[in-house]
């Protein structure tokens, strides 16, 4: 259904163009779920926004192909793209506090999707909005529908965002860090809701997060991104049980577990290189515990380790092959 081929995204800065996402490819079938993991700056959100072409056009350059239902979204005219947004592909964002328009009622904002794509009139859209609020389990929906965003809690607002996204029963929902800004208990509720809605509507979901544990629990397959590149792709179970890339290992170690003291949380030393200041060889080399002289010489390729499991780390790949 969705097939991304060699996607690269560059942004314009004062001194020219810098590469944000480099040569990313992956596919996603119908009714599938995929997770994308990485620290902030890894390019995971940029990749997601590219699917809907939501970057500011004048500062962005995109190359490659994003095939959706056999058409390349990158070459589609803006008018056609607009028909796809919200109808076939919907998106929810990280910060529900700022993602809703403060001067419009939530009913208005949910109904707008339906009024655009299904040409409903105001009354019908309002009624449908109440139904959708019910669907995302907001109590007393009929009364809540005329509320403004500031009258709702963060979790409620994210539910409203979800209601807005699923209004047209899209085939693909992209959730960009949907729970990062929320309390832990609310996080679990929102993920449960997304899981149930995926079943109910029969849509595919791409879940983006910096939390490998959360993603692996939710999705069938996980991509790990680092500094704009895919560094590992594997089924969730494999990724959880035996991640191959040293960066994925680091992410896994960084997951807080219930019995551990939060104060002693593991963090990968160093930080992600800024776009434009990436090292010549492997992007992760400066932080990598396994770094070899060859790593800093040339960028490593993404290679198949076993069917369905790809990594971008020749050192680990070689080690796996020798141990068998």
């Amino acid at each position: 259904m969705l097939q991304i081929e060699n996607l690269s995204v560059d942004f314009r800065v004062d001194s020219g163009w810098i590469s944000s996402v480099t040569d990313v490819s992956f596919t996603l079938g119908p009714r599938a779920s995929l997770g994308i993991v990485g620290e902030s700056g890894s390019g995971k959100s940029v990749t997601a926004l590219s699917v809907l072409r939501l970057h500011a056009a004048r500062n962005t350059r995109m190359r490659g192909r994003i095939m959706f239902d056999g058409q390349d979204l990158l070459t589609l005219p803006e008018r056609r793209m607009r028909e796809i947004r919200g109808r076939d592909i919907a998106m929810i964002f990280q910060d529900p506090m700022h993602s809703l328009n403060p001067v419009l009622t939530i009913g208005d904002q949910i109904g707008e999707t339906l009024r655009i794509h299904q040409k409903l009139d105001a009354a019908a859209a309002q009624k449908a909005a109440i139904g959708l609020l019910d669907m995302v389990r907001i109590p007393d929906a009929a009364r809540r529908v005329t509320d403004y965003p500031h009258q709702l809690s963060g979790g409620m607002r994210q539910r409203v965002m979800i209601a807005m996204a699923i209004a047209c029963r899209p085939r693909l929902l992209i959730a960009d860090e949907p729970t990062t800004a929320l309390d832990v208990t609310v996080q679990a509720q929102i993920l449960d809701l997304l899981r149930d809605l995926r079943e109910e509507i029969g849509m595919s979901v791409i879940l983006i997060s910096h939390d490998l544990g959360l993603v692996a629990e939710f999705a069938e397959r996980v991509l790990v991104m680092y500094a704009g590149e895919l560094v590992e792709e594997a089924p969730s179970l494999t990724m959880f049980a035996r991640p191959a890339h040293p960066y994925s290992e680091g992410l896994l170690k960084a997951i807080p577990s219930a019995d551990e003291d939060v104060g002693r949380l593991y963090a990968i030393p160093g930080r992600i290189p800024d776009p434009g200041r990436r090292p010549p060889g492997c992007n992760f080399a400066p932080r990598c515990p396994l770094v070899q002289p060859a790593c800093t010489a040339a960028p490593p390729p993404l290679a198949t380790m076993e069917p369905g499991h790809l990594i971008r780390c020749p050192v680990r790949l070689a080690a796996m092959e020798t141990t068998g």
């Binding site: 809907l52 939501l54 607009r82 028909e83 796809i84 947004r85 919200g86 109808r87 919907a90 998106m91 964002f93 910060d95 700022h98 993602s99 809703l100 328009n101 403060p102 707008e112 999707t113 655009i116 794509h117 965002m161 807005m164 996204a165």
Partner: peptide
């Protein structure tokens, strides 16, 4: 530059 403008664009608003 606000997030809610991006939300509106993601909905397919003209």
């Amino acid at each position: 530059d606000q997030d809610y403008i991006r939300t509106a664009r993601a909905k397919g608003v003209a």
